[in-house]
Design a protein around this nucleic acid. Structure first.
Lengths: 127, 127
DNA sequence: TTGCTAATGATAAGCTAATATCATTTTACA
DNA sequence: TGTAAAATGATATTAGCTTATCATTAGCAA
């Protein structure tokens, strides 16, 4: 698949800017809504494409939560996990990690990664 | 939704038996394959229906893993988490849990549940 | 500026999982 | 055993998200 040159566009800049400023993982829809303010008329397809670029550029990573569409966040945040609010449906970062987690695996199992997700109410929704 | 009486059938018994004997969470497909040996000609729709019954009967629970179809396991296993093998795509139970996990949440956040999933190679695939 | 072509946006198409449909088979009670 | 109705199984349909299509717009190098 010949990738060809990549052009600088208003739309891509918008998506990158939003993700750069985001303090929590954003879904495609959230990205679309936020980036639309910087690039009027922005379409979903373009957001998907921009995200795909940033993904294999390695600048962002996908955050997968069961039953939820993927969220995306900058990959320079270091190891951390996520909190999913049951009410507003937003995902949040939570700092830190208990890294003796891998110890839980049965013997002979080779643990490569792990994911921890907390569920409940975020600060705003709990108030 | 009038539920009406529930009849005892070979197919439902088969699904229940398989889940009763399972040592790890099973997907619909795995259930179909396994239960088919006890109930010949078993169809997917029937497995879905049997699982739905066992779910609201409370006898089984769903195990959700991002990007994977749901797995089901008996709900009498006590609190535990799961391991997903990247090679054979099977899910396994892992005993125990670090329950200071909820401490990781930011202040003001109300944590109700959590899920931990380890990824890697199961014993069989690591060998 | 011009011209080539990547990028965009609207929308159609694809994918996977799960539910609905419906003619046929089975259960279970009278 | 006869029979009403639940259950089955094959398959169509839905649902949510992602990718493909394609005519149009716009980056950018000459």
């Amino acid at each position: 698949m010949p990738t060809g040159p990549t052009r600088k566009t208003k739309q891509r800049d918008a998506v990158r800017a939003v993700l750069g400023a985001a303090e929590r993982p954003l879904s495609i829809d959230e990205l679309l809504k936020a980036a639309s303010r910087r690039a009027d008329g922005l379409g979903v397809a373009t957001v998907y494409r921009a995200v795909a670029l940033l993904l294999d550029e390695g600048w962002i990573e996908a955050v997968e939560i069961p039953g939820e569409p993927a969220r995306y966040e900058r990959s320079d945040k270091g190891h951390h996990h996520h909190f999913q609010c049951e009410k507003c449906d937003r995902a949040f970062d939570i700092a830190g990690c208990l890294d003796n987690l891998r110890k839980l695996a049965p013997p002979k199992f080779r643990v490569k990664e792990h994911s921890v997700t907390l569920y409940g109410l975020c600060a705003a929704c709990a108030a």
